[in-house]
């Protein structure tokens, strides 16, 4: 064998992966919401009673060690029905970043549902997120609690949120039993990507549509407050440092929250 053929064969064996561009859109890990919804249906039918817990992860920003740390903490618990991933899993919206975080969360043995964050929406992140994780707006019910996951990244998606979608998802159908209605997005309804007037209009709208609680990330800190209409809003801190939150819905449909950073303590409303 000539030396050139040997070296090429050796390199082919050693490294059989090629990337043609940093901005490719294929990733080697998928966490589609349809698969997770199917899994959630099995959990719902096997879970006795109406009480359940939901783990909330926010702003992973490719903090992979911390994400794995939180995954291990969640796996130690026996009260998590599913996980909400509250956006900004990447820094630059690159396929490699989506793949890494997907792999970091893949060992969770409960379903995961993602909302897109602003960082996830740059470069070709919109396409990658939509193809591999979830639509930008979708909703599902679990134990008669409606979860409405919506996109409010207004810098990257002009015109969001989709008020028609929110209204339709929040509406209680004639044959439906609804205990609570929760709205979930990356960015809270405050002056940030929205003007103060737009944010106030959104808070009014959420109240008018019967939203009981909203869950968000983006601010990188645990925050919990009630707005001028009495709707509570909770922010989960960034996953860095092993942080996450827990949402509990009890048998009566009452919601409570814990913030976890090593230990879990009750979220205190400002």
């Amino acid at each position: 064998m000539n030396i050139d053929k040997f070296i090429l064969l050796l390199m082919c064996v050693l490294l059989n992966s090629c990337q043609y561009s940093a901005w490719e859109t294929d990733i080697d890990c998928q966490d589609s919401y349809t698969a997770n919804l199917a899994e959630l249906a099995k959990i719902e039918s096997s879970l006795a009673g109406d009480a359940f817990g939901v783990a909330l992860l926010a702003d992973i920003h490719v903090d992979l060690t911390d994400a794995v740390n939180v995954v291990e903490q969640i796996k130690q618990r026996d009260d998590v029905a599913f996980v909400l991933v509250l956006g900004d899993i990447t820094d630059f919206g690159l396929a490699a970043e989506f793949e890494w975080v997907c792999k970091a969360l893949s060992s969770l043995d409960v379903p995961r549902f993602y909302v897109i964050g602003n960082h996830d929406s740059i470069s070709f992140g919109k396409e990658i997120f939509y193809e591999n994780f979830a639509p930008f707006d979708y909703a599902f019910s679990f134990k008669d609690v409606k979860f409405i996951l919506y996109n409010d990244n207004a810098f990257e998606f002009p015109g969001v949120p989709d008020y028609a979608f929110l209204a339709d998802a929040a509406a209680i159908q004639a044959d439906e039993t609804r205990r609570r209605t929760l709205a979930v997005s990356h960015i809270p309804p405050v002056k940030d990507v929205h003007t103060e007037e737009e944010a106030a209009n959104l808070r009014q709208f959420l109240f008018d549509e019967g939203i009981d609680l909203t869950l968000h990330g983006h601010l990188h800190e645990f925050v919990y407050w009630s707005d001028e209409f009495g709707v509570p809003h909770h922010i989960t801190g960034r996953v860095k440092g092993g942080r996450y939150s827990m949402l509990f819905i009890d048998e009566l449909g009452e919601a409570s929250l814990q913030n976890c950073a090593g230990t879990c303590t009750a979220a205190v409303m400002k």
């Binding site: 390199m11 050693l14 490294l15 059989n16 992966s17 090629c18 990337q19 043609y20 940093a22 490719v62 903090d63 992979l64 060690t65 794995v68 820094d91 630059f92 690159l94 490699a96 970043e97 793949e99 890494w100 792999k103 970091a104």
Partner: peptide, 30 residues
């Protein structure tokens, strides 16, 4: 890739656990 180098330095165990060739498969390309 630049973001991969930073991630690898910060999280070497993650890459070694999830990718081949000491995790370098996950951050680079031939």
């Amino acid at each position: 890739l630049d973001t991969g180098v930073v991630a690898y330095v910060r999280h070497p165990e993650f890459f070694m656990d999830n990718y081949d060739f000491l995790g370098l498969e996950g951050i680079g390309s031939l």
